[in-house]
Every structure is written in C-alpha cells, then in structure tokens.
Design a protein around this nucleic acid. Structure first.
Length: 779
DNA sequence: TGCCCGGGTGTTTTT
DNA sequence: CACCCGGGCA
C-alpha cells in the first residue's frame, strides 16, 4: 500500500505540493506530523536529495521520531541524511562549521540560562549595580528579548525609545549591561541559546557567500510549529528560502503558547505577504480525540478574538464527558487524581502510560507526585530540574567544557577549585580582575600568571600551574581518544568519581549514580558514533548535550504516568489527560489577567491541554492551596465556565455558583478578576443572574490571612502517620526501596528508626521525615 | 577555606 | 515552603 493511501484528501494535497511556498494550518490532532513526514518521504521518492532537505521541528525527539517514520518509507540510508532538528540544534551545527567567520572557536561553549545569569551577576558586581533593582533573571530576559528581535547591543544603546522606557523603569543601565554581557560571552567563546539564532542571522547578514551556499544547499525547507517561531527564526527561514522558495510551514495559530519567549503569531498571519503565490492547506479533521473533546475545545477557543477561522471536527464517537474533580486541598486534589487514575487503570486494564497529568506551573507537581507514590503508581516528571542542571552533572560537564574550550569562563570558575585544590575565592577574584584589565580571558591569565604579574604567592602559583597542566593534557588528547575514554579519564583523575563513591549519604549515592548515568550517556554516544562513522569526540558530545530537553529523554520501554507542564505537553497525546489546578490566578495565571492578549494565550494553553486527550479529559481544582507556604483560597477557573456545559459532567460537590469571596475574609482583593470578566465576557449576564452564592462546604471561613494550617481529615498523610511502625516490619522508602525495620528509639514525633535496606545498607531515619510506606507482612 | 545558620525573597510557561 | 545569599564561626 502506498503511503499516499494513508492520507485524507487535504493531507494528500499538502504532501503532493512539492514546489513553491505552502502553508498548512493543522488543527489539533489532524495528522500534522503524518503530513510532514510523508511530505519529506514524498520529496525523496520524487528524486530530492536528502542532504538538500532541511526540516525544523520543535523538539529533538520529534525530529528523531519523524526520521524513523520517514526511514520506514524510504529506508534508513536515505533518511539519516536529512537535516532535521530544532532551530537551535541545526544552527548550532552550522555555526560550528562557520565559527571562524564570526571570530568564535569551533568548540564554542553553549551557555545555559544558569551560566548566563551567572555572567550577568558578575557584570552587575563589577559595574556596582544593585541586583535587587537589576534582577539577573529580568536582565537576562530583557537581553533575550533584544536578541530574539535581532537588536544588537549597539542598536539597543542607540535606541531612544528603549532608553526612555528603561529609564522610566529605573534601569537605565540595561543597554550597558547587555553590551558587557555580549562582550563577555564572546571573550569566553560562548553562545547562549538566543545567540544560536542571533549569530546565525549575523552570519547570513555579514557573509553573503555563506548564506548563498546554504540557500543552494537546502532546496527544500519545512518548518513545524510555525506559530511559535520568533522574529530571529522567521528571518532565518525567510533568508534560506529566498532562492528556491520551496518552503512548507505547518502550524496552528490556536496552539501558539510561547509568546513570552518572543514567538509571534503574526509570522503565520504574514506568510501570504512574503509569499503571495503560496498555497494554503487546512487540516480540520481530528483523528485523535472524541467528539466531546473536540467540541469542548472548540467552545473554549472560540472566545478568542485573534484567530484564523477554521472548523475542527471529528467522526469519532462522542465518548465520555469531561470530568471535573473538586477537592478541599491541593493534597486531596492529588489523591483524587491518583484515585481516578487507579480506577480507570483497573476497570479498563490500562497501562500507566495511558495517563498524563498536566499543570500550569512546575510547582504543582509535588502534591501529584506524593499521591501517586503513596498509591504505588509509577510516574515520571518531565521538566523542573533537568538531569543536566544537577550540580554534580554540571560540575563534570564544566570540566568537559573547559577542556574543549579553555576560554569558557563559567566552566573555569566552576572547577578551578573543585575538588578543592587550594585555589580560593581571593585568588579567583585576582584572576578575573587581571583578565578584565587586559581584555583577556581568565584562562590566559591562569596559563601565564607571571606574565600578567598576578599578585599570588609561590604556593598558589604552583597549584594553578598544576591545574593548567591537568586541563591542557586532556585538551591535547581531545582529538586522539574517544569521547567516552576521555570523559571517564576526567571523572577519575579529578577525583570526582572517588569522592562521590566514598560519600555514602543518600544524596551522595544519588550523585554517584547520576555521574555514572552521565558517563553511560557518553558511552552510548561514543558507540553510536563508531557505528555511524561520525566523529567520536568529547566536544561533539557536549554540543549535543547542551541542547537536549527533558522531552527528548522519554523512553517508550517503561510504563509510567507522565507529569508535565502544559507547555511541555505540546505535540503529545494521551488517552486520559488530567488538567489540574483549574483555579483563577493559577490557570489562567494571575500575571495574564491584565491584558486581553495574555489571557488569550492562556486560553490557547487550555485549548492545548484539552486537545492532548484522546478518550477523556478530566479537570481538577482545590478549594485551598499552599502558595509561598501560605494557605490561599481558590476560585474555580473561568475556563471551566467557558466550556459548553453539554460536554462537562459536574460532580455532586460542585456548586456552580462562585463562592462569595468576601465571606472568606479577602474583601476586595480577589474581586478584580470578576470586574475584569464582566468587561470581557461575551455573555454579560453570566455571573449576575446567579442567586446569592452558597459558601462551599468545608472551606474554613472568616479566618484571617496567614493563618496556621488547619488540620483536615483529608490531610492526614499515610507516609508520616508512622504510629504503626514496629520492629520487624517491612517498609518501603522512596529512595532506598524496600527494607526491614531493625530498631526503634525515642518517642513520637522524634522517633528514630533503624532500617536495613538490602540495596543501600542500614539507615537511621527520623520517622517524621522519612517517606515511608508500610508493606504487608510477607513472612 | 568551608560549613552552617538565618533572613529575605520569590512562581508562569522553555530552547 | 524552598531556595539563595551573606555573614559568622570552626
């Protein structure tokens, strides 16, 4: 059977349109990925050279999956040669080739956000600026915004409007900081994430012959998730496409959720201006979800003003109504969700991987996590602190970075005295100071301290020179030995491996395992490169690793419930989806309430969340929730009310009236959204017709703010109600696994238990802290 | 030089 | 609540 037979008419037309610009507006679940993959396969079948195809995706994982699917049509030997990946990874690769044109080393470092902020902190210190006013995170996002809009430091400094607005916000030095930051990164041979796009634009602007080469190399361009491209990305695409105009962009304006990082829906809306003879394809049939889900999602998104007209429909069954869960506390919400998952799993014999829990903010994962753990439901959290951001991983990676690129200042600062080798802060400060004076990199200073008259004593000089020799030795072997051999060698001879091995505390053990995992990762990389004939070098590995996302490391083998932010769920699908924290000020986020466009983005986010579900979507909320350690009261999200009620099943404890907030002692504080809503809501009567609202049962009322937590029945925690623990019992610990209680001492709540874990040995744990679960007696 | 404590502070969302 | 930072102490 031909792959073309697997497509509906619209899809097939989009696939068969080979020449000239085209845009595919693809509703949620309408087989967008299928169109992209088959279109590429079709190109190759029709004689296109895989090397001439550039396909830009949103995640590396999506690229990998697409490649596999294309390979199944045209064969692996063809598919492997397609240029496919995220903007960031594809252009990082290109920048590597062209680095010398921009004055960067081939082995330039990619700074992550932590590195960037650390650079900014250093600059603030040197410029004597208050980091309470110039908050590093804020400064960074400002710089990021400038780069995404291709504004250079010079242009930033020269722009009057920008200057006026910075002055008005009390931060007149932002331009200078930006300039210093760019300079500092350049001297360190480092690019941040935004530079990968920004510098690509610089390359194409200042080196026409280079642009020309890529324009002719890439005869076919495909861009996925076009609605979430920013200006820098847009311009790269436009330039590359300028010669052949074989450009196909795919997207859905209703799923644009990244404007906060510069994404611009206008890129979709302006497509016809740039390519007047473009062909438009609309994919409107949804194959993913039940009719209920599709219609419910439609009823929500139609409240947005800014959108391209389309009609997403499905021929699937009606399916189950959208369920709604209402809990009294965030912990109870977790329990209700876990319970619901458990029931579906049992009743319908489903695997854990059929479920996903989606939330607005990462902080919400905790209550979910706890509840799942208590019920022994395996889960995996995506996002949050990623593997590569852990301290021990960053430390070892910093060695790798420094070895590949000695100018990397952040890496140098990180490892020059780790493990401790007697080069203290004072010495580091002197090195940095000397580097700044002479416009050198710290590495230049460290290499020849005497030449720069670094005021240090003999002992320190000796230690520094030892360190330099150490790094240089590895630097020279970079092109000689394999990535893995070098990585292992570094981990061992720095003493990091041994240090962590001797540390038998739970944290130490976990750190050791993480380092092992990283080394395994390098090993995989080395082996892969050997098989595929690529260069097996540590610097190549680093380049790869810097741009990996959490979403990239999902492995299909294991079975688990997926927990992630809605943003991270983009492009994914699950039979059962739980959208938790459906509360005003949380979702929609409080920060979005001031502007219509921000609120519309939140609504699109909600649309994305609902449309991840294949069979059923469930929403949940809590009446009270801990935020910043304080108990706060929550109102149901307006989004719940925006769904056509025909598609929602309200639970018995659902009081559709909004509770009277003044009853809760908040007075005016929370009423702002109501008045806002009156202005914006298309049905002005929706709130006024309601009778005097009844208070929600069980919500403590009339209690002043900052109250102590009120113990509630539903709040008792199985893990910490440890009264039942006795000597000889089998228990399970979140980290150590199963174990046996050997000894108990002290009295509650200070009871200490000595427990023997076959995996980790004897541990003494304070019962009130240990996350213990009692296991049934197996003897 | 390194660790521990206390206070202050802050939550969207990510390559 | 949880993190980060700075200051004080061993």
């Amino acid at each position: 059977m031909s792959y073309l037979d697997e497509l509906n008419d619209h899809q097939r037309q989009a696939v068969q349109h080979i020449n000239g610009p085209s845009m595919v507006i693809a509703g949620a679940g309408s087989g967008k990925t299928r169109v992209l993959t088959y279109r590429i396969a079709h190109l190759i079948k029709n004689g296109a050279d895989p090397f001439s195809i550039l396909s830009l995706t949103f995640t590396n994982k999506a690229a990998k999956e697409m490649k596999e699917r294309i390979a199944s049509v045209v064969g692996y030997s063809e598919a492997r040669n397609i240029w496919m990946g995220t903007f960031h990874s594809v252009f990082a690769k290109i920048l590597r080739f062209e680095a010398d044109k921009l004055g960067y080393p081939k082995n330039f470092t990619i700074y992550d956000s932590q590195d960037s902020k650390s650079v900014i902190k250093g600059i603030l210190k040197e410029m004597n600026l208050d980091d309470k006013i110039y908050k590093p995170g804020l400064v960074f996002s400002r710089i990021s915004g400038a780069k995404n809009n291709l504004i250079s430091p010079q242009e930033y400094l020269n722009n009057k409007d920008v200057h006026i607005s910075d002055e008005a916000s009390g931060k007149p030095k932002l331009g200078e900081i930006y300039a210093a930051y760019a300079d500092r990164c350049f001297k360190a041979g480092a690019m941040d994430f935004d530079d990968l796009l920004y510098k690509t634009n610089v390359l194409f602007r200042d080196h026409p012959q280079s642009l020309h080469a890529y324009q002719h190399k890439f005869k076919y361009l495909l861009v996925d998730e076009y609605q979430d491209t920013n200006y820098a990305q847009y311009l790269i695409v436009r330039k590359l496409a300028a010669v052949n105009e074989n450009l196909c962009v795919v997207g859905d304006d209703a799923q644009s959720i990244y404007s906060f990082r510069g994404a611009n829906i206008q890129n979709i809306l302006n497509f016809k201006k740039d390519y007047p003879d473009y062909v438009l394809f609309k994919l409107e049939q949804n194959y993913r979800s039940t009719q209920t889900i599709v219609e419910a999602a439609n009823s929500v998104i139609k409240k947005n003003k800014d959108q391209i007209q389309k009609n997403v429909w499905t021929s699937n069954d009606m399916g189950e109504p959208i369920a709604l869960l209402r809990a009294n506390t965030d912990n109870e919400e977790g329990r209700m969700v876990a319970q619901s998952i458990f029931e579906h799993k049992m009743n319908e014999q489903l695997k854990e991987s059929a479920f996903a829990i989606l939330y607005r903010t990462n902080a919400q994962s905790r209550s979910m996590e706890e509840a799942l753990r208590k019920m022994n439901i395996p889960y995996k959290i995506f996002g949050g602190l990623s593997f590569y951001q852990r301290k021990e991983i960053k430390d070892l990676l910093a060695y790798f970075r420094l070895i590949c690129n000695p100018k990397d200042e952040e890496a140098l600062k990180r490892v020059i005295n780790y493990p401790a080798r007697g080069i203290g802060q004072t010495t580091i400060d002197k090195i940095i100071l000397s580097a700044r004076e002479g416009q050198h990199s710290p590495w230049d200073i460290v290499k020849e301290p005497a030449k720069f008259a670094l005021p240090i004593n003999k002992g320190t000089a000796g230690k520094i020179s030892e360190f330099v020799t150490f790094i240089e030795r590895f630097h020279h072997s970079l092109s000689i030995i394999s990535a893995y051999d070098l990585a292992f060698e570094v981990a061992q001879s720095t003493g990091i491996l041994k240090d962590l091995y001797t540390d038998k505390s739970p944290e130490g053990v976990a750190r050791y395992e993480n380092i092992q995992e990283l080394l395994n990762g390098v090993k995989d990389f080395s082996e892969q490169r050997k098989e595929q004939g690529g260069e097996d070098r540590l610097d190549e590995f680093l380049m790869d690793v810097a741009l990996l996302t959490d979403a990239d490391q999902a492995d299909e083998k294991e079975d688990y419930v997926s927990l992630m932010t809605i943003h991270a769920s983009k492009g994914l699908e699950f039979p059962y989806v739980y959208i938790v924290g459906m509360e005003e000020n949380l979702f929609p986020s409080q920060l979005s309430l001031n502007s219509r466009s921000d609120l519309e983005e939140e609504r699109r986010l909600f649309y994305v969340a609902i449309t991840r579900a294949e069979r059923q979507a469930t929403m949940s909320m809590a009446n009270t929730r801990y935020r910043w350690g304080n108990l706060t009261y929550c109102e149901p999200s307006r989004f719940i009310d925006e769904i056509d009620t025909n598609f929602v099943k309200f639970p018995s404890n659902w009081d559709r009236q909004l509770s009277d907030v003044s009853d809760l002692g908040f007075g005016q504080e929370k009423s702002s959204w109501k008045s806002f809503n009156k202005k914006e809501d298309s049905s002005p009567n929706s709130y006024q017709v309601k009778e005097k609202p009844k208070p929600i049962s069980n919500v403590p009322r009339g209690i002043p703010k900052n109250l102590k937590r009120i113990p509630q029945q539903s709040d008792t925690n199985e893990y910490t109600s440890v009264e039942g623990v006795e000597v000889g019992m089998d228990v399970e610990h979140a980290r150590f696994g199963k174990g046996k209680v050997v000894k108990l001492e002290g009295s509650s709540p200070e009871t200490k238990a000595t427990i023997f874990f076959p995996g980790s040995g004897k541990k003494v744990l304070l019962l009130k802290f240990a996350k213990l679960k009692l296991l049934p007696d197996t003897s």
